[in-house]
Amino acid sequence: MTKESSQPILEVDNVDMVFGGLRALDAVNLQVRVGDCFGIIGANGAGKTTLLNVITGYLRPTKGKIVFDGVSVTGKTPFQLAKSGMGRTFQITQPFVEMSVLENVMTGALFSINGRKRSIAEARAFCDEPLRLVGLADQAETLAGSLTLGAKKKLELARVLATEPKLMLLDEVMGGLTRAEVEEISEVLEKIRDSGKTTIVMIEHLVHVITRLCDHVYVLNFGRELFQGRPDDVIEHPEVIQAYLGKPQTTNAQPSGT
């Protein structure tokens, strides 16, 4: 695989995150390579979102180092990281509720690295593509606050796509979507992954999505690494089954459907 030889775009080096007496992250080490699709799984409360918050600068790690694109970014603020090409979605969706769907995505297209050169009209035209990709083109004029949860998740994705990130961190972007929609969004992510322009890190509970999209999976349990490796190995790992999956999974979609 060529991927093995490619450069790391993100390195999390021995990161601890302590809140009061609670050790939310404990010596987390991981490396994401350019062009990878990197999955993070773990039970609720395992520290997945905390890890994403540490990577994107919303939290400053108690110990350890974050390296993005070859530069140490520990202690950088979220907007500095966004400017250097990081993008993320939020598990609890954070749309700008008083803006329309289109305006939300335009905000992404106006303030990113490339976006600063765009006029408003150019940004509007640019947003057609992300909106169409996630399937929100029909609802461009709807007020974001009035979307259903699933549509808000899609909006999060469209907005981060509009920033054209080098590294995109997705926090449960499929939550609240139906199977058909999960299918559509998976295809979109597959295309993005295959285009090689954007590296994806995704937190997801849908195991079949992880096995389909990811090259590498990291399992977090009580803030610590439980296992990491290829998706097939992860879902067969007895400790992962015990702590997270609850029962053995098959690689292809859902057992009951076929």
């Binding site: 799984i41 773990g42 039970a43 609720n44 598990q91 949860l149 449960e172 939550g175 609240g176 509970h205 195991v207 702590a243 997270y244 999956l245 609850g246 029962k247 999974q249």
Partner: peptide, 13 residues
């Protein structure tokens, strides 16, 4: 309303 939303497979169970 959506009791399994955003939960790990084991927790859904």
């Amino acid at each position: 309303d959506e009791p399994s939303l955003g939960l790990a497979p084991k927790l859904v169970m």
